[in-house]
Design a protein around this nucleic acid. Structure first.
Lengths: 258, 258
DNA sequence: CGCCGCATTGACGTTCGTCAAGTCTAGTGG
DNA sequence: CCACTAGACTTGACGAACGTCAATGCGGCG
């Protein structure tokens, strides 16, 4: 089961500060427990050492703090070490839209490349730590390490494909389908990180879920209640237990009747 | 004004076929009239010559034909020379969603990088011709030409940012706002290609517009009619003339009242 | 203990989807 | 040249899904 993190955090003192772990291990990609999910995926040991060079510093962000904001100068991509983020864009008249939720091992900041400025906000939904990877250093190194170059391309392509899926959801699914798809996606990603397949703690409010899914918070809440009535999930505030995964899958994909 | 193209097309005989222009000019990036919009943006003349190396062949696609399909092996990106495409994804139970419309100078196929297979269909909405750019060759060359490397990254980032905008549209706008934003976006891109700022011919059906905007075709039609009643646009089938651009902008962005 | 933000639930209204009829246009063949 | 057809588009009547507004409940934190 997913549990609350309680690392003592000081957002500003992150860079250069020694970690208080007993052995004071240097935290490098090569021994990071996210190396199977994060930037180094598929790299050979020798290449893995090179990738450590791109991680300049680490940075801590407190719950509610921003990693970057719309309009800020773009300089780096960020690999999430711990914590949970949302990214959101806004219209000029104030409406905003959550474009994604990101968790450990995922890369954030790709939106900034095209105009040298970020076009969305990245907000920590719980205390978080990220690896700062200056983008010019990534470009430099990916000219030398082919596997890194291809991996960067894959990360960007994956984000494009993910967004295609969100467009499909927003464009053609009903509330129940959207929420079911959302829960299945979350629990699948958490499972890949060693958490439960059936239990999760939502790190975001109903309003943020609604914004992501193109629904109002009341509709999200009602839809949760409906799932509970049907015995598909148990919900107690932000704690969700999935009772019947197949039922959720059937909601998303209603052609099979058993 | 935008006009119908009537190049004689033979979809299969494209590669290696001589063009019938009087001077039989070799069509290269360096003299392509799209070089200010397409792949070569911002490259120096010397680099421009190198980029010609990545264009392996050209390929013609007839109206209604597919450039690639969901599930096909990914090998190349495509730069659109002429014509108009849509890309769409589908759920397993048959619903599909148009994820974008692409016109001359735009790059298509980025979705295929992550899994080595395409995850959407690219369909020509009118007879079209594309430059085929094998992706391994792009990667090879962008290790040598820094400007190309960065440009590829920008193209992918631009697509991510574009999709953020679509998510905002699908997640938080009403029908009128969606259609107004759609028309403004189309006419702006056409204008960048030398067409009118106020007149355009839609290359897609009401149903395809609706799919892209998360609306049914009847709603698209009704919303067009509403714009006509209000004197904002004139619509005769697929021919659209924008009478009052500011009114459209006000619909999308309703905080200013004049 | 009391406050505050978040979540739930109900009643009601709006927007958009559904279904159906009818129109227009371009393309085809007599 | 005109009749015919098929596909695309328009329009209306109605209903369902979701949004809005408001009241209430719950839980965590100072």
């Amino acid at each position: 089961m997913q549990e609350a993190r309680n690392i003592p955090i000081s957002a500003d003192a992150a860079a250069g500060q020694h970690r208080m772990t007993p052995q004071t291990i240097k935290v490098a990609c090569s021994n990071c427990n996210l190396r199977e999910l994060c930037m180094p995926v598929g790299l050979k040991p020798a290449e893995l050492d090179r990738i450590d060079e791109v991680v300049a510093t680490r940075r801590k962000v407190k719950r509610g703090g921003t990693l970057f904001r719309n309009g800020e100068k773009f300089a780096s991509l960020y690999a999430i070490r711990t914590g949970f983020f949302k990214t959101c864009v806004a219209t000029e008249d104030g409406r905003d839209q959550v474009t994604g939720f990101q968790m450990a091992g995922e890369i954030i900041g790709l939106d900034g490349i095209v105009n040298d400025h970020h076009t969305c906000d990245a907000v920590a939904l719980e205390d978080a730590e990220v690896c700062v990877m200056p983008f010019d250093r990534i470009e430099e190194l990916s000219r030398e390490v082919n596997a890194l170059q291809h991996h960067v391309h894959k990360i960007m392509s994956r984000e494009i494909v993910r967004e295609h899926g969100v467009m499909l959801l927003l464009g053609s699914m009903r509330a129940e389908e959207r929420l079911a798809a959302f829960l299945l996606n979350l629990v699948q990603r958490l499972h890949a990180r060693g958490f439960s397949q059936s239990e999760l703690i939502l790190r975001m409010t109903r309003e943020e879920i609604g914004s992501y899914l193109g629904l109002k918070l009341e509709t999200v809440s009602r839809t949760f209640s409906k799932f509970v009535e049907e015995g598909t999930v148990e919900v107690k505030q932000r704690h969700v237990r999935i009772i019947d995964t197949d039922a959720l899958k059937r909601i998303v994909n209603p052609q099979v009747h058993h």
